[in-house]
Simulated scan of single mutants.
Amino acid sequence: MNEMIWDDTKAFLALARCGTLTAAATSLNMGIATLSRKIERLEHSLQTPLFLRFQTGYQLTDEGKNLLTNAEAMETAAFAFSKSAEKESQLIGRVKVATAENLATHLILPALGLFQQSYPNLHIDLVTDIHTANLHRRDADLALRMVRPTNGNVSFQRVGKLGYGLYCSAYYQKERDDAKDDFIQWGEHYEHLPAAQWISGQLAGKEPIITTTSVATQVTACLAGIGVAILPHPVARPTKLVCLADIPEINQEIYLVIQTDLTQSKRIRAVADFLSELVKTHQDRLN
Rank of each mutant, 00 (worst) to 15 (best):
V219D: 08
I209N: 04
T150H: 12
C243Y: 05
H192N: 12
F156T: 03
S155Q: 13
W186N: 09
W186Y: 14
G227N: 03
P194M: 02
T132K: 11
G225Q: 06
K240W: 00
V228M: 07
E188Y: 07
V147H: 06
L203C: 09
D177A: 00
A229K: 03
L135Q: 07
T212R: 14
L144C: 06
D182V: 00
Y190D: 11
C222W: 06
T212A: 11
I184V: 07
L135M: 08
Q218M: 15
Y164K: 07
T128D: 06
V242W: 04
Y167D: 09
G227Y: 02
K180H: 15
Y167S: 03
P248C: 03
A245M: 09
P149C: 02
I247W: 03
W198M: 10
G225S: 01
G225E: 07
R158A: 13
P234A: 08
D141I: 01
T213R: 11
V215D: 12
L193D: 02
E191C: 06
D141A: 04
T220V: 11
S200D: 14
R137N: 12
L162G: 01
V147K: 06
R176V: 03
G165K: 09
C168A: 15
Q185E: 11
D182G: 06
S214A: 10
T212G: 13
L166G: 02
V235H: 02
G187Y: 02
T260Y: 01
K206N: 14
Y164P: 00
H233K: 14
L241D: 05
R148C: 09
E249C: 10
A224K: 14
H189M: 07
E253D: 15
D129I: 02
V235M: 08
I250G: 05
T260N: 14
D246A: 14
A204M: 10
L256N: 05
I230E: 08
Q202L: 11
I210E: 11
G201W: 05
Y190R: 10
N251V: 00
I230S: 09
R138C: 10
A204N: 15
V159P: 00
F183P: 05
L142R: 04
G165M: 10
R145G: 06
R137W: 09
N151W: 13
L142C: 00
I247Y: 03
G227S: 09
R237G: 02
I209F: 04
D177P: 00
